[in-house]
Amino acid sequence: MYRFLIRRILGAVVILLIISAVTFFLFFAIPRDPARLACGKLCTPESLEIVRHNMGIDEPVFLQYWHWLTAIFTGRDFTYGHCDAPCLGYSFVNQEPIFNAIVDRFPTTLSLTIGAAVVFLFFGVGAGMVAAARQGRALDKIASSASLLGASMQIYFVGVLATWILVDQTQILQRPTYHDFTANPVAWASGLLLPWLVLSIIFTANYTRMTRSSMVEQLSEDYVRTARAKGMSTRTVFLRFAWRGSMGPIVTIFGVDLGVLLGGAIITEQTFSLHGIGELSIKAVENQDLPMLLGVVLVSATAIVLFNIVVDAVYAFIDPRVRLN
């Protein structure tokens, strides 16, 4: 187990290095000068040089990448002042330290992800199990049609509609805002309830379909027949045997989804004006803000790589045939 973790974490570091390098060099492949943008209307060639130097983009690209990389571990001195390790640089746009910006925004994204994940895992897997148990009957058909409908929804459509009905017209739910969880858990939950529900609609639909098909497949397996042949009740057969076999694929997809969501639920954040990582990444692209772009890419990549490792470890617990070493 430890050997597995160490090996996988080392591998993850390599992947993150590659991703950051590719992002870095791709950025400079774009034929637009971020210094020009920062320099403003009254830009002279001299001031442009100064701006470029301040932004640290007057050096060769390889050297720039090296400075960016070492700053994460050692910190770095900028014209604006010293940036402590872990330093991801300053924003080109508003000179805000990137690390602080991410730490500032991450709780919003994390809260959005956790809440939505709880909702879609509960309802998606639940509905899928019910559909599998009632195969071919009314409940199955209802669940299957509803999930098809849900899977074809768009967040910006459902989100705006739900806000209009549940917030503007009937005031059943609060207008989405982010409150700190530690300060006021109730405000935190009620402020995020609507985004959670809307974000989880598509996921719930997908998990319903996935759980159902996985369970149906497992229920026709030989070992499930054996379980019935030795007198296990329908409930035991369902939960102890078929569900156990269905968990693998669901956990795998769940890990990927969590990773993706932690990189920022861009559309959901935009729809509900929440200030999370997704919003940061859109702004970074709009403003050609390289340090910010690298920062958010690093966060998303870390989340995905990390959850992949977690999924593999969990898999070993679910299925004893999987050996980690």
Binding site: E221, D222, Y223, R225, T226, A229, F241, G245, I318, D319
Partner: peptide
């Protein structure tokens, strides 16, 4: 009852 293929007929989990 005993089934034909003991690998698939026993729960792997």
């Amino acid at each position: 009852m005993i089934f034909q293929d003991p690998l698939t007929s026993l729960s792997p989990y």
